[in-house]
Design a protein around this nucleic acid. Structure first.
Lengths: 129, 129
DNA sequence: ATAAATCCTGTAGCCACTACAGATGCAAGA
DNA sequence: TCTTGCATCTGTAGTGGCTACAGGATTTAT
């Protein structure tokens, strides 16, 4: 399978695939005589894993750790669970931060009637500390 | 006021201040004979505005637009409110995205008991599309 | 006068891609 | 066989919003 088909199968842009190879998240693939990359089913599995992990917000480094565990075949659930829960805490923190943002934005936006008056309570709010 | 004092007053790192100047978010300040930057109260107001807007998650481009409106002194509430509400929608979308993430992560993490068994439901979940 | 703190410019790095430019490879039609 | 046209190649630079130096100049305190 050439990189185009590989890309379609995994839902990963071609440039991203080459990028993952460059940063050693994907191993160097076989090549055709002319130098085009060749992938197999095993690689599809790996890239789907990566893409799915990215969708769930894991960082490249976290994914690298997860893959090391999987590749070593000696991982324990505990190691994996720790990474996942740390990440989950991260996500929760981000949600909390955004909620505060939403509240503040909603409040200052609500003070404004959106008319033609050139003296906006939003601008005032942004100017005050 | 030199850049150090300016930085303390506004809560903005020195490097960030110089960065904002470079990207023309802050105007070029006066200089001492030896070439050190000099700031006044007006600049403090402007940078506080910028910092506050950043804290609320506005992008540099959004802030640039807001500042253009303020600088032109001919803005209407409507223009400002539109920018704010667009941004608020953004924030809401991000919260929704993160909530979905949290749910999925919680679900797959919950399936795992964290023992020593080397066959983790989390890894399985990441491998499946 | 000198030491220490602050400031200067310019450049490179961060993350996770994305977007080119310009050169090949390869399959199908004339 | 030649050409057309698409897919792929490498390498480099750009994104956003900073942050972190290096190596020098200036200012302030002693």
């Amino acid at each position: 399978m050439l990189i185009g088909a590989f890309s379609e199968r995994t839902g990963c842009h071609i440039e991203t695939i080459r990028y993952y190879e460059r940063i050693k998240l994907l191993p160097k693939p076989e090549r055709t005589g002319g130098g085009h990359r060749l992938y197999d089913r095993e690689q599809v599995k790996r890239l789907v894993f990566i893409r799915r992990s990215r969708e769930l917000g894991f960082s490249i480094e976290e994914i690298r750790t997860l893959l090391r565990l999987v590749d070593g075949k000696r991982y324990t659930c505990q190691e994996v669970k720790t990474i996942t829960e740390t990440h989950l805490e991260d996500v929760k923190r981000k949600i909390a931060d955004l909620r505060r943002l939403q509240k503040t934005l909603g409040a200052i936006s609500g003070q404004c009637e959106g008319g033609l008056v050139p003296d906006c309570p939003i601008i005032d709010a942004l100017f005050s500390e």
